[in-house]
């Protein structure tokens, strides 16, 4: 599955024995380590090593003409490879897809079988899965950073790419690219499946209807931004559990807590909470007190920017 895995022959686990430690290559007596041997063979596959030559002579690849772009490009390739070489990526993306499409099937199937009224919001009904799928994508965003701090891999990352802003930007860019594409596919599939199931009730929407493209793209953007907030939070909190707690504390607990506020205060706070913004993004006629879909996405973008700025500050100011 990982597209970039090195071409190494697969081995069965019973072929592994403790004597790999004492293999010929590992032996100090192997010819490749013979200091007096042919110099070019000392580093098989690598550039020839000439004793006494400087570090700057050793790098194998040619230097690029645009250092900053090179550095960012390399960081992007690194983060891309990292993303696709751990199982959690596949699990969280799979979970997000299944939740988005599955809940569309359940919600729309139930509405159709009971012949109920969808209140003029067939698209919102088919996209109700995003409220659960956002958890899986939030987890993916958090893990992209917290797993590195948790294992200590972040020190290898920062030693390889000393500019920490480049590291954070590359992580955010790779995450945004992958999740935008994945969420778009999931939202399209959920919408299509939901409308297919609603057809017997005659209330189904189609892509040509007003606001539908905006709703599907908005749901996609919403999911991506929530994941990016998770990424930024993890750069500050560094622990998986802590970052998830903060992220979902804001998203879920705050939403519940607001219900206990007196009516007027509640109405002035609710529009700025992510869940309310999600509703306003996926509905044709948003609730009266909420922000418009465009304003909701813009505000969520501001939240995301703040989370990433906090993460950037934390990465720069604190030791790895």
């Amino acid at each position: 599955m990982p597209p970039d895995a090195a071409p190494t022959p697969a081995i069965s686990s019973d072929a592994i024995s403790s004597d790999i430690i004492s293999s010929d290559i590992a032996s100090p007596d192997a010819t490749s380590w013979e200091p007096t041997g042919p110099v070019d063979s000392a580093w098989p596959g690598g550039p020839a090593v000439r004793p006494g030559h400087a570090a700057s002579r050793w790098p194998s690849a040619a230097a690029g003409r645009r250092p900053a772009l090179d550095m960012f490009g390399n960081a992007l390739r690194c983060e891309w490879t990292k993303l696709w070489t751990v199982r959690s990526t596949y699990w969280t993306l799979f979970a997000a897809f299944v939740l988005t499409v599955g809940l569309a099937a359940i919600a729309c199937g139930a509405a159709a079988s009971q012949g109920g009224d969808v209140g003029g919001e067939p698209a919102a009904l088919s996209l109700s899965g995003i409220f659960v799928a956002q958890i899986a994508l939030g987890v993916l965003g958090v893990l992209m950073i917290s797993s590195e701090y948790g294992s200590g891999m972040i020190r290898t990352t920062f030693a390889a790419v000393p500019n920490r802003l480049v590291v954070l930007a590359a992580k955010a860019a790779v995450f945004a690219g992958v999740v935008l594409a994945g969420a778009l596919v999931a939202c399209l599939a959920a919408f299509a499946l939901g409308q297919l199931l609603l057809r017997p009730t005659g209330q189904q929407a189609s892509f040509g209807d007003p606001e539908i493209v905006r709703i599907v793209l908005g749901a996609t953007a919403y999911l991506t931004l929530i994941g990016l907030i998770g990424l930024g939070v993890a750069a500050v909190i560094r622990h998986t559990a802590g970052a998830l707690g903060v992220l979902f504390g804001v998203m879920v607990v705050l939403q519940i807590a607001v219900q206990f506020l007196p009516g007027e205060l509640q109405e002035s706070v609710l529009p700025y909470l992510p869940a309310t913004m999600a509703v306003s993004v996926v509905t044709v006629n948003p609730p009266a007190m909420s922000l418009s879909a465009g304003a909701s996405i813009a505000l969520l973008g501001v939240y995301t920017a703040l989370a990433l700025l906090g993460g950037a500050w934390s990465m720069l100011a604190r030791d790895a």
Partner: peptide
């Protein structure tokens, strides 16, 4: 491979 990619190493 992840580490190699980060520095443009083959």
């Amino acid at each position: 491979l992840c580490i190699a990619r980060s520095n443009g190493i083959s």
